[in-house]
Write a protein that binds this DNA or RNA. Structure first.
Lengths: 169, 169
DNA sequence: TGTTCCATGTAAACTGTTACATGATTAT
DNA sequence: ATAATCATGTAACAGTTTACATGGAACA
């Protein structure tokens, strides 16, 4: 996942490991985070595989290593973008690919969002179905965690609809 | 985290590794999951440390290993329950401790929920503060992931309020 | 002169999943 | 017969965090 995120950020322009960390922390922190201990080794692996290329610079006596996405890196990124949006019951992983949807035609984005909704719906229905039984057999706290899930999945569906509407104009 | 969850479930009564997996899958699946490959080694570690005790049974020719929480296990669990609710920006970890709040007096639960709100609020405000800037500099998809975060944190706060209200009666 | 920030990187530890191995029982 | 479910467990791998090590630049 981290490698695709790095590729995605590099699609917007060259960045150093430090810059990547800043970027992720600044605008992706509500759905993803990564430490230096994961970013630097990832960059090394990725350069070794040829999907990114490094360029060492010295600006004002300051050493910095910039990374550029290669053609094979772009191909790998776009291939990942074509795959369905990842959905997790316990993490907002679906936001990761949506974040980079700029690189996809609107129609494909629509397909992705509709497919995502079709993944969330049955999960919501199972929880709603369990609701009455849990309310009987379990206590208020356990039931409240279930209610959290129901509201959360509904929120994802509404968010998808909002984005789909925004894409219409 | 898994070890505390196992302790918490065993607070309700003895269970086998298989039962624990079923239980987690059935009613905690929207905020936590664990595989057998993590549950069985955890049980082994925990028994070695003396916080749980196993008992092997054969019922109808079927072998099963039940685990009981020990007094030191109960002490460790309660100590964890007294600590503030864990909050993660990217996962609904706060539900884990709330799930077991039955073992805490109402006043302590109230404190936990208020403290949780106080942790979520600044995170929400930072996101809301970044909003206008992100809307300008970034595209609709990136902005939509930020909006997801804003709505999500608001949802957590509302859910806390609902639970606090339910505790009043 | 000391502290903070910029910047890169490594090693150990932790946490967890996937896949496999085993074997009994139950349902078709 | 055979497939599915019950039940326990291990080994290999994957991904990550934390803590450490290093060193220059900016600032007070």
């Amino acid at each position: 996942m981290l490698e695709y995120i790095i590729l995605g950020i590099l699609m917007y322009g060259d960045k150093s490991g430090y810059d990547l960390k800043q970027y992720i922390q600044r605008i992706m922190s509500n759905f993803f985070d990564a430490s230096f201990g994961s970013i630097y080794p990832a960059l090394k692996r990725m350069e070794h595989r040829g999907i990114i290329v490094s360029r060492e610079t010295v600006e004002g006596g300051k050493f910095k290593k910039f990374y550029t996405i290669s053609d094979s890196g772009k191909a790998e990124f776009m291939n990942w973008m074509e795959q369905p949006v990842e959905f997790s019951k316990t993490k907002p992983d679906h936001l990761i690919k949506v974040f980079f949807c700029r690189f996809l035609p609107k129609e494909k984005v629509r397909d992705h969002l509709c497919a995502l909704k079709k993944e969330v719906e049955p999960v919501l229905h199972v929880l709603e179905h369990n609701g009455p039984e849990v309310k009987k057999q379990y206590d208020i706290y356990q039931f409240s965690t279930l209610k959290f899930g129901v509201g959360y999945y509904k929120y994802i569906l509404n968010w998808c609809d909002d984005l789909l509407r925004a894409l219409e104009d």
